[in-house]
Design a protein around this nucleic acid. Structure first.
Lengths: 246, 246
DNA sequence: GGAAGATGTACATATGTGTGAATTTATCTG
DNA sequence: CAGATAAATTCACACATATGTACATCTTCC
């Protein structure tokens, strides 16, 4: 069950992150199609807790810097080492595609850092974006780091759906693809989950954290050069990863 | 009416900002005294939206960097000029007390930047902290920047409460104190709102934004030196504020 | 290796909450 | 400066939702 008012808080914040300017109660209510009274309650709650204020009289609400302060505190802990961002920035620059760092979240994989392609047609992904762990290159690069028991536990929770023609729809299919990835030397996906989307990924263990790097873009661009892209990822990781670390 | 589940989202985030490590469903439920089932729903909602993930198997949930990405987007817009942070940093260093930048939020004043005193006994305030606009030095420094009509509008919404012996409990009392502040050259408060707390503040208009700076601490430390503190604030603002700006 | 305990998930139902309509307050217009 | 229009609040009730209970799954310890 999805907690509506919890989701609404996030929606409001995303709204402000997009518009980047104060908004009045009426504007917010209209934008979301929420009743004014409900919007009033929500805004009052956020204000009361010190997360919204009125920068200038009658110009509406805007988030306080408290969000930033809190987010900083949270992200200070085990931040990603700086070289991982360089990694995806370099990869994106060299390939012209979107590159990301990905982490596990149950049966899903979450994008925790993203550098977007500049191309007009591109893979549009943002930090926080989630994809099924078994049906994506990045996800399978995570699964490769699991023990057999851990993978089995994950499999039990997966609802196998036919997202696209090549989606693996059984445990065996996933395990087979994992074995193939090992012998191939990298993970790949051709529209296994998202239409027209292809990607190449490799595992990226950092300390005891299981992460992966992925480069993804439209099938027609990535397809012909998966091998090179995968090789490039491996080379770039080699170049940037501090030698001392695991 | 306060929207409970909206507040709960904030509580969870504050919880993570404090503990700074992943927490399991059970830990979170126990910490807040929430039922497991409800906690489950909330965590599921936050995860589904891409704001929570599981950094490592079975170690529980932790916020994704999406919070940070969003907060950055929001705060990029009209951030405070850098000199205002220097200002309160200097003030705090010189006085040994807590110094803050404050903005209006209806009948309240919100702390939008804070540098805390290092003293054992100190004014504990965080970004997002809210105080009544009429019963605090910082708040009155905001009111001084309003027109008479605007002030009247605010007064109509204030519930006058006797927070302490010296709290102004009428419009006249507030207006009188404002006039006194003007002739005195700065705003002050001696436990008008918080017990044992005293502060000195001056208006700090920046562009068309109405802000104020305040230095606050225990009455026994601030009391004897309000005049100097106020003078110091004025001098420091003079020194740091770019001459070109309004 | 198996039983006890802890943790995570599903679901029906009573209760707390979102909402539409009414009221108050602010803003615009001639 | 009315009188009209739009925005912000308040409130009582119907219904969506948070929760207690039951079940499943994982972990621990003997």
């Amino acid at each position: 069950m999805i907690v509506r008012q919890a989701a609404n808080v996030l929606e409001i914040m995303e709204f402000f992150a997009q518009t980047r300017k104060p908004a009045t109660l009426a504007e917010i209510a209209d934008h979301f199609g929420w009743p004014r009274s409900s919007t009033f309650n929500l805004l009052a709650t956020l204000s009361e807790k010190g997360y919204l204020y009125e920068p200038r009289p009658r110009a509406g609400f805007y988030p306080t810097p408290r969000w930033l302060a809190m987010a900083r505190m949270i992200s200070e802990v085990e931040p990603l080492p700086t070289w991982t961002h360089t990694l995806i920035a370099d990869l994106s620059a060299e390939t012209g595609e979107t590159a990301s760092i990905v982490a596990p979240a149950g049966v899903m994989a979450v994008f925790i850092d993203v550098v977007e392609s500049q191309a007009a047609i591109r893979y549009f992904a943002t930090i926080g974006h989630r994809v099924p762990i078994h049906a994506t290159a990045s996800g399978r690069a995570l699964l490769l780091q699991y023990s057999q028991e851990e993978r089995d536990a994950v499999y039990r929770k997966i609802e196998f759906k036919q997202y696209g023609p090549s989606t693996p729809i059984s445990i065996e299919a996933v395990e087979l693809e994992l074995r193939n990835s090992v012998s191939r030397g990298y993970c790949q996906s051709f529209a296994d989950y998202s239409r027209d989307l292809a990607g190449a990924a490799i595992p990226l263990p950092i300390g005891d954290r299981r992460l992966s790097v992925v480069v993804a873009g439209p099938e027609f661009r990535i397809g012909p050069k998966v091998v090179e892209v995968a090789a490039l990822i491996a080379r770039t990781v080699d170049r940037l990863r501090p030698k001392a670390a695991a």
